[in-house]
Nucleic acid binder design. Structure first.
Length: 633
DNA sequence: GTAGGGTTAG
């Protein structure tokens, strides 16, 4: 039978106009014999029949198409029922349409039942079903169906590959993903832009950014999705600079970014705390036609708060027409990282009062850590008890317990925190012990600290941070013998430590400083400034904290090492290169060292400059020699 | 009739 795809759209429309109320004839399945159609419809049907069309096919296809477009579940079911009643045996095409109809109407079970009943399947029906599972997050069902498809002898096409790869994003799925990649190469689909995007995204999410980049570079054509995929690949791995550079390059090449692209680049800008760039993107969005979807606004909230501008973040939050739990969380995390505990609690109360969006695990984490950063341990404990009492609707997990240890430890309740850990219903993680070790160090509890420190060295001997903190603790107790043996142990275990890096943004340029790197053009001038300040600050009472240096060198060397810390370089660069009226905003990739923190306080006091320092954990807003972190971070 | 990229995280 003839089923031409063309020429009949207007006839189809006419047909549907008349059939839209689904006065399905019950006595006959053959449309031409339908006696309740009027002259115009009869004419339309006649024309189609004259052109050799299977009238039942046209009829059902038109109806189902409309039901899919309108997500008209009941009507679609009636069409399906009518097929059954009239013993009409749909061809694979129509059968697949029925499956797609059920999928679009969120009835996966109906779709699967139909799929299982199909007398024969083709690549489209297989792909439609795989896609249904993929899009709803049923990755294992999608993958198992894909394997069944291969076993059945049906060859996948570009649609199948593009969709199935999205189900390979999990630790167990990556293995299968690589095998699918081989098949893609074998069947020559690697250069297909949809397949390529999906493939490179999978590699990026597995942390294999070089492979992802390789696939991207081999694509003969690029579009906004593939470009966004590679940008977000870098951004999600924290390779923010690379993400930003690619974005700029694609913009220059004329890529039409969409809201997903902007969302991804904003993530990178958050990581870099590149406020000027971020503002530029925001301004562009306000002037452009890009729709302000919630995800994009969430990204803007996060960008502004991670760039240190909570006022702008809140302004966006307040003007949103619709908020998701992520909007609330992004704002709460912002306040939390700035040590604004009262704001955290107020916003959390607002969220509970509004009762439109349910808190999730991240919400409670943000609130607990917000209380912790702000020294509101009683409030924090109240919320934790609300949670364990089922009043929040979130079950505590290991991270929440970690927050409680942090709350108690910070408040000096070290023994209590220790007891709390011992009573945990599970084996405490390194992160939990780490919180307690930090507290022991700050509150000089050598007994518990020693126990916890050695426990940590057993659990994660490769983590340099543990050696450093324990060594500091021993040093403050004057136990130099232990300090030495710890240092030896640390060298033996050859622990890798991420190199310290600090940067500052001036006029949309990011100036990065590393401790051992002299590549910055004004490095000499900057180093001289650090020297100069050191002398000047010493007169004002600054004492270099040599315990921050673990190297086995004399004191003079230690001081030299301290003065080469990347934070100090970035701070001094800010001092000489930025206008006096603006705060010095420095970002560090790791936790800031105690000595640099102290140094920054002197800058703020002696130069009357506000210093905003973002480290791995939080913001330090330093004004007049005082820091918003209260010297506990 | 079937397809790819996105936001929060002590």
């Amino acid at each position: 039978m003839l089923r031409s795809k063309h020429a009949l759209s207007s006839t189809h429309k006419a047909l549907f106009q008349h059939l839209r109320f689904f006065s399905l004839p019950s006595n006959s399945h053959h449309v031409l014999s339908t006696h309740n159609c009027d002259t115009q419809l009869r004419e339309a049907l006649l024309q189609m029949a004259l052109r050799g069309h299977d009238m039942n096919f046209q009829y059902y296809n038109t109806l189902l198409n409309e039901c899919v477009n309108k997500r008209a579940f009941r009507e679609g079911q009636r069409v399906h029922a009518h097929m059954i009643k009239t013993n009409y045996l749909p061809c694979v095409f129509l059968w697949t349409r029925l499956i797609v109809f059920y999928v679009k109407c969120e009835s996966l079970t109906n779709a699967r039942n139909l799929f299982d009943e199909m007398p024969e399947r083709n690549v489209v029906s297989w792909t439609a079903m795989i896609s249904a599972y993929s899009q709803r997050g049923y990755a294992s069902q999608a993958l198992s169906l894909f394997v069944q498809m291969l076993r059945s002898g049906t060859e996948p096409n570009e649609f199948t590959f593009a969709t199935v790869l999205t189900s390979c994003i999990s630790s167990s799925g990556f293995v299968l993903g690589r095998q699918i990649h081989s098949l893609i190469v074998k069947l020559n689909y690697e250069a297909h832009v949809y397949v390529g995007s999906s493939l490179l995204d999978m590699y990026a999410k597995d942390g294999k950014i070089h492979e992802a980049r390789g696939i991207f570079e081999c694509l003969p054509e690029r579009d906004v999705v593939s470009c966004t995929a590679i940008i977000s690949g870098y951004a999600q791995l924290g390779l923010d600079q690379e993400a930003l550079e690619l974005f700029c390059q694609f913009q220059e090449e004329g890529m039409q970014s969409n809201y997903v692209t902007y969302t991804s680049v904003l993530t990178a800008l958050s990581g870099l705390a590149a406020l000027d760039h971020g503002k530029q993107v925001h301004n562009h969005l306000l002037r452009s036609e890009v729709p302000s979807f919630v995800v994009l606004q969430n990204s803007l909230i996060d960008m502004y708060s991670k760039c240190g501008n909570l006022t702008y973040a809140r302004r966006i939050f307040d003007t949103m027409h619709e908020r998701t739990v992520i909007s609330w969380n992004a704002m709460l995390v912002g306040y939390s990282k700035h040590g604004e505990g009262r704001e955290v609690l107020q916003l959390f109360n607002l969220m509970r009062d509004e009762n439109k969006v349910k808190p999730d695990s991240v919400t409670v984490l943000a609130v607990l850590s917000g209380c912790s950063h702000a020294g509101l341990e009683d409030k924090g404990m109240d919320i934790f008890y609300d949670m364990t009492g089922g009043k929040i609707g979130v079950e505590p997990d290991t991270k929440h317990y970690g927050c409680v240890v942090d709350l108690l430890g910070r408040a000096g309740r070290v023994e209590e925190a220790f007891e709390f850990i011992r009573k945990l219903p599970f084996e405490p993680s390194a992160a939990i012990w780490g919180c307690l070790l930090g507290a022991c160090n700050v509150h000089l509890n050598v007994d518990i600290g020693e126990f916890v420190g050695h426990r940590l060295l057993e659990i994660e001997p490769e983590n340099a941070g543990n050696y450093v903190i324990l060594s500091n603790l021993y040093a403050s107790a004057g136990r130099w013998e232990e300090v030495r043996s710890l240092r030896d142990l640390m060298l033996k275990k050859t622990v890798r430590k991420e190199p310290g890096r600090s940067w500052i943004e001036l006029d949309q340029i990011l100036h990065t400083f590393h401790a051992g790197d002299c590549s910055h053009p004004r490095r000499k001038e900057v180093s001289a400034k650090v020297q100069e300040l050191s002398v000047r600050f010493k007169e004002a009472g600054y004492v270099p904290d040599l315990s921050c240096v673990l190297h086995d060198v004399d004191e003079e060397q230690k001081e030299k090492i301290l003065l080469s810390h990347s934070e100090k370089l970035a701070l001094c660069f800010g001092l000489i290169a930025s206008p006096e009226s603006v705060p010095i905003r420095v970002i560090k990739n790791l936790r800031i060292c105690v000595d640099c923190h102290n140094f920054a306080k002197y800058i703020s006091k002696i130069y009357g400059r506000e210093v905003s320092l973002r480290d791995k954990n939080r913001f330090h807003r330093i004004v007049g020699g005082k820091c918003s972190c209260g010297d506990y971070w």
